[in-house]
Design a protein around this nucleic acid. Structure first.
Lengths: 183, 183
DNA sequence: CCACGATGTAAACATTCGTTTACTTGATTG
DNA sequence: CAATCAAGTAAACGAATGTTTACATCGTGG
């Protein structure tokens, strides 16, 4: 590790950022503590010291990254177009929170953490924003499509989902997302 | 283990059946060889002997279970209704092949296996059956919705997906699946 | 400037995993 | 009935995991 000025807060932040990057690229179970700390250029023991363990680090990383305003701040009349633009943005710099979420499904402890944050940070705000008596069903529709899309983009990467999205598929995604708002 | 007549073929079949059940309930990485063999009431060493290891067992289990005819044998005019009936069948006895598929996403080796079988056993037959120039985009639409649905039924189980499906969500699923055929 | 606490490190620990090895048991065949 | 080889078992192995421990070192306040 390169010499660096000692700074607990900065080191904690380095670990958190590395965790977000790692967990959004690979599944929770597939990312080792040593992978994260190597990425952060930091000693593995510091994960336990600063976060109390891998699971708590995952929760902190997911909690920090999840923000439903990314979706509920969009104009309703262009919801479909813009959400697809966000999801398919090839130049996105920040890690994908949803990918972190779905990558947690293979570990029972991480799954519990992820489910809690999924409800409180995504589905509830979305349902409120959609409104009406079908609010929850609409939130479920959103989650189903998003999850399916991210699965084949990040978790089970099919070649066809890499790079730019096929036009017909893109149109369908836009229409199907927009229909959630319009229905 | 209970005394049982020695029979290599039967033992192999027991292991395969146990693997299908286990892998369709929990993710690949979460299922241990010892879990499977305990379920099959068989010695752990036999997995390596009969299948050459956990990964090959997974491939055999998935390969045996995946059969696109489950979908392509349905009447086109009722595709949506019937596919949803199959997916939401609470009394289903046999393990869900698609759940096995998605559970593989957290292990890089299993992911490669699953991707290969997904293409050859599901997407290609589906695309052929859908036909037309949008065949692949249609197959992708099918996979996105299916995957999203199964994720919240099996992998990240949301309470709302347990038991019977909420009527509005069910209608949407039926219509969205049917639209793939009709478009 | 020196001591002390915060920060970082290296190593080992306990556990779990898939797999292999050496061995025992049992069914079949001549 | 006995011999032989397939079938099954128990135990241990080596690697990888998250975490803890004991120690080193840096920065700072008195």
């Amino acid at each position: 590790m390169a010499v660096r000025k000692r700074n607990a807060e900065a080191t904690r932040a380095r670990i958190l950022a590395a965790a977000q990057q790692a967990f959004s690229t690979r599944a929770y179970a597939e990312v080792g503590v040593r992978d994260i700390t190597a990425l952060a250029d930091v000693n593995p023991a510091l994960v336990s010291r600063y976060f109390g363990g891998k699971l708590n680090l995952f929760e902190a990383a997911l909690d920090t990254a999840l923000d439903a305003r990314l979706m509920t701040d969009l104009p309703r009349e262009e919801f479909g177009k813009q959400i697809v633009a966000i999801f398919t943005d090839e130049h996105r710099s920040q890690p994908s929170p949803l990918a972190m979420l779905f990558g947690a499904s293979s570990d029972s402890a991480a799954r519990e953490v992820a489910l809690g944050l999924l409800r409180s940070h995504v589905m509830r705000p979305l349902a409120v924003w959609f409104g009406g008596e079908a609010a929850w069903a609409k939130a479920a529709r959103f989650m189903i499509i998003s999850t399916g899309y991210f699965t084949y983009r990040d978790q089970l990467p099919l070649d066809e989902f890499a790079g730019s999205v096929e036009p017909r598929l893109r149109s369908w995604l836009e229409e199907t997302f927009q229909a959630i708002v319009d229905d």
